[in-house]
Design a protein around this nucleic acid. Structure first.
Length: 685
DNA sequence: CTAAGAGCCTC
DNA sequence: GTCGGAC
DNA sequence: GTCCGACGAGGCTCTTAG
């Protein structure tokens, strides 16, 4: 496969390409250019021209239009001379309309970059341009269009792959079949059928061994249950009626990916209809097997028993790199498909080239949990650091010079929503920082607002200036990944804390206590809860910043409430709970008579309990029952644990339980013994 | 102009 | 977010 | 010790329907 990018549609270039290969894909953001390219290519005898949206991954500054053309040799009968010609052409990326400082360069597979005069490029056949171009210094190869960060751009990997599969060597050309969606679907089905994790890894690695770098990102993405586009605005409603499936599976990954990008891109009035039409177009090109797969993928319910964790192993196996290196690269890059593609083409060296990069979010370290402070100290190892656990939104703040970016736990950029935080970081004495913390809305008296207030403020994008006056945000940092240009991830907690204290003013530090004494720790826990906060995070003094893992380094402890509630109804489960009544509707007793629903839960149920309750509920079934919900006679009392009571706009009592889970059934209790709404209401204050 | 639905984010 | 099951 | 998949609460934005 060969890729050529240019700034605009170039008739001479396309004409030449038309003489050399069998399949052309044009990538562009300008409809007119696309149409002209399509017309030209069609006239040149191509039966298939696909249009894909350009993306930022080529390192082209946003707004700089460019065209990418991918030429695939579709027939193994291509004359060797053509292959030789293709192999020397390699890849050209010329961003257009970057007036003044226009970087232009050219790379050929397995060789060095060269400079290209864009005028020549436009006016002359490619071969002549190449012949006239001079070698360019290797060290400056990374201009626009070249990979960002060395190994992460797709284009570069593609070029390397050309060399790998022997395109530079005309004598020994192997035929590299394009990977189809159906190939991925079949592997997914094999993974689903296999229960052993190593077996799953084997199936995935086998596929990774035969995808080209072009498709690697898409394949890895799909097989770890996500879309490269992340979300495309398609849910169950949009998929209610899709066209009849096709009989032959011909859809390529690139084609599906392109359609999904277009689906994501539509917006404005009429967009829902347009999106539906595009979804229809996508599904019309898929077999029923593929449709099923795509449906689950779009819902985010792949249910094949393999996500990132298993795919990491598969990437390791297929690339020959240790999984620790894959994992490490993932925490720094935040997106497994990019890491996987790099590993497949560049091996362990490419993985080790990933670095903490200011401005690019790192997967945050997560905490395990323990039922009480003593258990947490035991897990983390005493003495440990105890930090206040604030009930807000996790943030990762990056500062490079005077530029600050703020990311959430899932690496979303929320910088515009939190100006207070930006100002706070800009006031710090270092201009090269990556900090980990929590934003929270505090009342004037310093006590925290309910979580809902913080969440509402953080997710609001309009009228920020007014909102920040009404509900100012505070930020409390608790870790430092980089201070003053030094990466700290591998240092023990205690040393990272020293750096944190240097960079962050006292008022923005999360309150903490270092102790090995259980009694002292428990007093600290009581204090933080009294102050209205969520609990504590107990941290090992020696653990590094294990990004992206829920390790033993950090252990959270929260107080737990319980209530005896009545089961009002239950919902049929899905997936591994198919055929079982799973989700319980929970009600508190109303002293006036009847019950007030406070929420639902499906958590805390063992398989045995699930089987038991399904049988029992069907005996108690009464009243309106549909394919979703079974209403019950209110006779069963169940003990429920939960974190707190919050105001609810949805439930009749105006309140709902947060993180409700089943502890056990209480056959010894009668409904008359269940807790009342008054008891629950008193917990909300 | 308002309300409701859908999708996607936080916890 | 929590939890149980499976490796 | 880890990973996965069962699904919970609220609330914001964007779009469409009335």
């Amino acid at each position: 496969m060969l890729e050529i990018g240019s700034m605009g549609y170039n008739a001479a270039l396309l004409a030449e390409l038309a003489g050399s290969a069998g399949h052309v894909t044009s990538v562009d953001i300008d409809g007119d250019i696309v149409e002209r390219a399509r017309a030209h290519l069609t006239a040149a005898g191509y039966d298939r021209v696909e249009v894909v949206h350009a993306d930022a991954e080529y390192g082209v500054p946003s707004g700089a239009p460019f065209v990418r053309i991918i030429v695939t040799v579709a027939s193994p009968d291509i004359p060797p001379a053509w292959l030789a010609q293709l192999a020397t052409k390699g890849r050209i990326v010329v961003p257009l309309q970057m007036k003044g400082r226009c970087h232009r360069h050219l790379t050929t597979p397995g060789t060095r970059s060269r400079s290209v005069n864009p005028k020549d490029f436009r006016a002359q056949p490619l071969s002549r341009v190449l012949a006239a171009s001079r070698p360019r210094a290797q060290s400056r190869a990374a201009g626009p269009g070249a990979p960002v960060g060395g190994v992460q751009g797709r284009g570069w990997e593609r070029c390397r792959h050309l060399a790998d599969i022997g395109w530079g060597n005309v004598g020994g050309v192997g035929h590299h079949r394009r990977v189809l969606l159906i190939d991925v679907v079949r592997v997914s089905e094999a993974v689903t059928r296999t229960s052993a994790r190593l077996g799953k890894v084997g199936h995935l690695a086998e596929l990774l061994g035969r995808v080209g770098p072009d498709e690697a990102e898409i394949a890895i993405s799909y097989l770890s249950g996500e879309l490269p586009q992340r979300q495309v605005g398609v849910g169950w409603r949009t998929l209610e009626d899709v066209p009849q499936p096709k009989l032959a599976a011909t859809a390529t990954l690139a084609h599906v990916d392109e359609l999904l990008s277009r689906i994501k891109a539509v917006s404005g009035a009429g967009s829902q209809a347009a999106r539906r039409a595009l979804v229809g177009e996508l599904f019309a090109g898929l077999t029923s097997q593929e449709q099923q797969f795509m449906r689950r993928l779009l819902f985010g319910e792949l249910r094949q028993g393999a996500l990132d964790g298993v795919m990491i192993e598969a990437v390791a196996k297929a690339s020959g790199a240790p999984s620790a290196d894959v994992r490490r690269a993932l925490t720094l890059r935040g997106w497994l498909p990019a890491v996987g593609a790099a590993a497949l083409t560049g091996g362990v060296d490419a993985l080790r080239a990933f670095r903490l990069e200011v401005g690019r979010a790192v997967s945050p370290m997560l905490a395990g949990s323990a039922p009480n402070v003593a258990a947490a100290l035991d897990k983390a190892g005493a003495p440990a650091a105890l930090e206040w656990k604030l009930d807000g939104v996790r943030v990762q703040a990056h500062r490079s010079g005077s530029e600050v970016k703020v990311f959430t736990r899932t690496l979303d950029d929320i910088t515009p929503q939190v100006p207070e935080l930006v100002e706070g970081v800009l006031a710090m004495p270092y201009d090269d920082l990556v900090l980990d913390g929590e934003v929270i809305a505090l009342r004037p008296d310093g006590r925290p607002h309910p979580f809902q207030v913080t969440a509402s403020r953080v997710s609001s994008k309009t009228d920020i200036e007014r909102l920040r006056e009404q509900t100012p945000l505070s930020v409390f940092f608790f870790d430092a990944l980089r201070v003053d240009g030094a990466d700290l991830l591998d240092l023990p907690y205690a040393q990272r804390q020293e750096a944190l204290a240097r960079a962050v003013p006292q008022g923005l530090l999360t309150p903490r206590l270092v102790t090995g004494e259980t009694a002292e720790a428990e007093r600290f826990f009581i204090d933080v809860v009294k102050a209205g906060h969520e609990g504590l995070v107990v941290k090992s003094l020696t653990s590094p910043y294990a990004a992206g893992r829920r390790g033993a380094g950090w252990i959270k402890v929260k107080p737990r409430h319980t209530l005896d509630l009545v089961v009002l109804a239950a919902e049929w489960g899905h997936g591994r709970r198919e055929g079982k009544l799973s989700n319980l509707h929970l009600g508190a007793r109303d002293p006036e008579g009847g019950f007030v629903m406070l929420g639902k839960t499906f958590k805390g149920l063992t398989d045995e309990l699930l089987a038991w309750q399904t049988e029992r509920f069907l005996e108690l079934a009464e009243g309106p029952t549909d394919s979703w919900t079974v209403t019950l006679r209110p006779e069963l009392v169940v003990e429920i644990a939960f974190d707190g009571v919050q105001r609810s706009p949805r439930y009749p009592g105006g309140m709902a339980l947060r993180f409700a889970r089943v502890l056990r059934y209480r056959p010894d209790k009668r409904v008359e013994d269940a807790d009342t709404v008054e008891t629950v209401r008193s917990l909300m204050l």
